[in-house]
């Protein structure tokens, strides 16, 4: 099952016009956190907030809707969100913490919850893990290369970055520029090459753009907790849904991309293992489902 275990998959977006305007896709991450804050299901959320340099995010603990919205939008470089979870509890005194997490961050969080060797009184305070799909991530210097060198734009003019339709896009106030994705190849971080999770298989709710039309998101509800929050948000009218397209531009493309990512990663895992390098995952010969995230 390359899309992980889930209860339901839908196409959805925030009904809030402001969120629609600033969010990356359907604004699901921001809308869910704002709703959960409002309803006191969480008392804060770790998000990728603005940092000192343009487009170089810093994890931050958001406790108001404004702070959530200030962190909306995708930054294609590292935001070590997991680091902030402990601060959210110890320094901010939160009891119910939400966090946005790319799949590998979800793995760090879930491992800590199942095996909290040196981490006390945190595991049960994680109330909502909103996972986002992820094909790869880039060191900040790679982003600089794409934007400044390859597209000749200065980073402070960039209003949005996006990956889609085979291209890396940059939006400025009056321009939309792109480079083909193959020009970004070789600039990804190496750790991504053995990553077997595209759709945040271990999150409570996971969301991404692939599989839904522009301005909308594809959403999987996975755990009981995730299902409860998402359904409540839909019922409250802060998120609207429609059936997901099961065809070529819907679940088919999502399944295809997830499968490709996993197949490529399995090849790399096998290659590294054959060289005697350490990888925490099993070789394809050691597992029943060669595409499982084990």
């Amino acid at each position: 099952m390359v899309l992980g275990t889930y209860k339901e998959v839908v196409t959805a977006r925030s009904t809030d016009k402001e969120i629609q305007k600033i969010a990356q896709d359907g604004g699901i991450v921001s809308a869910l956190f704002c709703y959960a804050l409002e309803e006191k299901l969480i008392d804060g959320a770790v998000v990728a907030g603005p940092g000192k340099d343009f487009w170089k995010p810093e994890p931050m603990v958001a406790q108001t809707a404004d702070e959530i919205l200030a962190a909306a939008g995708t930054k294609y470089t590292f935001s070590p969100n997991v680091l902030m979870l402990k601060k959210a509890v110890r320094q901010y005194g939160l009891e119910k913490v939400g966090t946005v997490a790319i799949p590998c961050q979800t793995m760090g969080i879930r491992k800590m919850q199942s095996y909290p060797f040196g981490v006390r009184f945190l595991a049960d305070k994680i109330a909502l893990v909103t996972g986002i799909f992820c094909m790869e991530n880039f060191p900040f210097a790679s982003l600089q290369t794409f934007i400044s060198e390859k597209m000749g734009v200065s980073p402070e003019l960039v209003e949005k970055m996006d990956i889609g339709k085979g291209k890396f896009w940059v939006h400025t106030a009056d321009d939309v520029l792109s480079i083909p994705l193959k020009e970004t190849h070789g600039y990804e971080q190496s750790g991504c090459k053995v990553c077997l999770d595209y759709v945040a298989e271990l999150a409570d709710v996971s969301t991404g753009s692939v599989g839904s039309p522009d301005g909308w998101s594809t959403v999987f509800t996975r755990t009981d907790a995730g299902e409860t929050v998402f359904k409540a948000a839909v019922e409250a009218g802060v998120i609207e849904t429609k059936p997901v397209d099961t065809g070529k531009f819907g679940l088919e493309i999502l399944t295809k991309l997830a499968t490709q990512k996993k197949e490529k990663a399995m090849k790399e895992i096998d290659r590294r293992k054959s060289m005697g390098l350490p990888v925490p995952y099993k070789a394809s010969s050691e597992k029943e489902d060669p595409l499982a995230n084990v």
Partner: peptide
């Protein structure tokens, strides 16, 4: 030695979260 040098680190921040003595910070992921 065992994560970054082995092309495995993904900048998640779990290590820095777990350290009880704040010996770890995250720099450039």
């Amino acid at each position: 030695y065992k994560v970054v040098n082995q092309a495995l680190c993904i900048g998640c921040g779990t290590c820095a979260m777990a350290c009880q003595t704040r010996a770890l910070t995250m720099t450039d992921g």
